[in-house]
Design a protein around this nucleic acid. Structure first.
Lengths: 213, 213, 213, 213
DNA sequence: TATGAATGAGGCTTCATTCAT
DNA sequence: AATGAATGAAGCCTCATTCAT
């Protein structure tokens, strides 16, 4: 059954694109697009300069592929999570935040947020892609959830679009901080993200709930 | 009386450093540090490449000078504003936010936030400087204000450090958005920052106040 | 009797060198030595990059082998043709020209002339080889033929060495044109090589013959 | 009168483009387009790599500029020469050939012929330009001259288009040879171009003239 | 044998910096 | 002080060649 157990070489080849994307993600997040040398990406993926170009035709294409690859699943998973939820909107909010933090806040892919912010104006098509695939779906998910809460009487009536930003901002801030100042070994205590998010939800829900605790 | 009425050349010469810093700010914010060419900075300031180096010995020093120059005043002004405030902490919060948005959110200097986030890991000393001069003072200002409100019974007791992040995050998010996706002419309506901040304060104060309205 | 009926694989294997030389010839003529990638040669020969190196140890050796292979036979055949000729030198000239055009002008091997001209200075030993194996024999053949014609009274006395160049030039020009401008699909009518050669021989023989028609 | 004597720096700057084109011409002719490194061109022009790119944005543009610069004048000069000629077409032919040989055959610009032959298929637009600016005008000039000779009874009637090729070929051959095999220091006597051209005209005119000498 | 993934020297090009004017 | 031509280190990318399978 030679075909069922591909040679190490084969297995390596199939893993290469992901290995390169992982290396690219960590380096682009660390140093930014322009300051990252393509040879560094290759080295971090354990291959030589030339090999990178067997898989991605240019540094720019590597970057775009990396962004695209890091984005598709997260949102769809959150949407699925929301769809199958039973219970109050407040508890769904807590669940979504915790889930999002686990998947974005803690994983390397969270750095995408930082790099998209930094590079949006240099890669407008990519920015549009990010808005379409990540920002807008996320906002719509949360806006829908707030609307449902308002309709059921659980929440006070609030301007949905704007409230969504207020909900999202602290989490984005935490992720951004983690990949910028938080990664700098500065003097001062590190940020306790979990605690911040707890306080946020506490404050926000008091502000949102029709009958606060 | 040459000193009392400087020639246009003199005046020009004295304005040079600030003109260069302004050009540097707008370009570094627009494209990032590495992707900005020093000749572009000179051109936007209306001088030649060589002249830039008469005032700043390297691109990196120009960058650092630009960051330093864009930061000192804003914080001290907020501190002063808070010191002379008379009235409730809630109203002071509203005042500070409005003031900060006017000075950071609407002015070019707001872009500093974006670029510091993007470049913190490439310029750790600068990051430390930014933390010391901007982030920490701001947090301490707000934490003190919250503490005062709690002490006076105006606010519920909340974890100060963490609540501060929740207060700040939406504004940072708005500034960052303005200089990244917001500058991209993407499909979709632009962000109404004023409205978002109103909603934020509305929600936050309900969460904070011991006796909500 | 394995040796009398070789397997398809065997036959294929034995044909490989020639297939590679053919591919090399067409590509080197088309794009020049430096601009031709060895992988292209392999692809046009229907094999993989690695296989090429089983037959020729380097691109340069492949090139040399291709030049050598494309040259040996043509000259010896012309010499043989001349040796067995019976009749006037004028008619032999016509025969040789027609023969040469058929074998060089119309076949892919004619491109060798172009590439040797282009690469002579990059491959001096190859240039020497080409001079020794092609240019000089051809010149000697024609010079001998002219000398014979002069001796017999058929031709006027002319400087042999120089007249040979005049005889050869139009044909070389036609071959070169065919593989350069002629292969470019330019505006303008294509060159009618046969007609040009007819006119050439007509003019030349009037110039040569002791008693022109 | 500072403006009438530009500084050495200024003078240098104005000379640079031509110096670079000269260096490019000699190297491209010597080694071909692909085998010439842009740094070599710069070095031969006495400047550094970077300086080349201040004047020409890429190797390809340098190449095109070099070809264009080497071509315009020669043809127009020949046309002028022909226009002001008084006397027989035979003598004009001799004059033109001698002139062309002096300007093309002996000067570095003659190498253009070789490189255009070698690179026509890699630069089709340039090939078209060359055909339009050099080949066609030359052919039309000679065709017109032959036609005039035929009309006046000086020449026998001959197929003009084809005869033109026969006239041109030996000269092209000599130039090509000079820049290929002739530049190789091969064994064997160098080609005596003047003598070959004399023999050619002698033979050709016998073939052309209605009443040969 | 044949393959094609991998390598890395080398070429093209950019751009921070210098310096003669 | 101001200029901008010049430099050359450094980055992106190609492609001849190797080698494990």
């Amino acid at each position: 059954m030679a075909s069922s157990t591909p040679s190490p070489r084969q297995r390596r080849k199939e893993a290469r694109p992901q290995e390169l994307l992982d290396a690219a993600l960590s380096l682009f997040v660390e140093k930014g697009y322009a300051a990252t040398r393509s040879e560094e990406v290759a080295a971090r993926a354990g291959v030589s300069k030339g090999t990178l170009y067997l898989y991605y035709p240019s540094k720019e294409e590597l970057f775009k592929a990396m962004v695209r690859a890091s984005l598709v699943s997260p949102i769809t998973e959150s949407v699925a999570l929301a769809a199958q939820h039973r219970g109050s909107m407040a508890s769904l909010l807590r669940t979504l935040m915790a889930d999002w933090w686990a998947r974005m806040g803690m994983s390397p892919a969270g750095g995408i947020t930082k790099i998209m912010m930094a590079e949006a104006r240099n890669f407008p098509e990519l920015a549009q892609f990010y808005v379409d695939e990540v920002i807008r779906p996320t906002q719509e998910l949360l806006a829908g959830l707030l609307a449902k809460g308002v309709a059921s009487g659980e929440f006070r009536p609030v301007p949905l679009e704007h409230a969504v930003h207020v909900l999202i901002a602290p989490m984005l801030h935490l992720v951004l901080h983690k990949h910028s100042f938080g990664a700098c070994a500065l003097h001062g205590p590190p940020l306790d993200a979990k605690a911040v998010l707890d306080v946020q939800l506490d404050l926000m829900l008091r502000g949102l709930l029709a009958s606060p605790p």
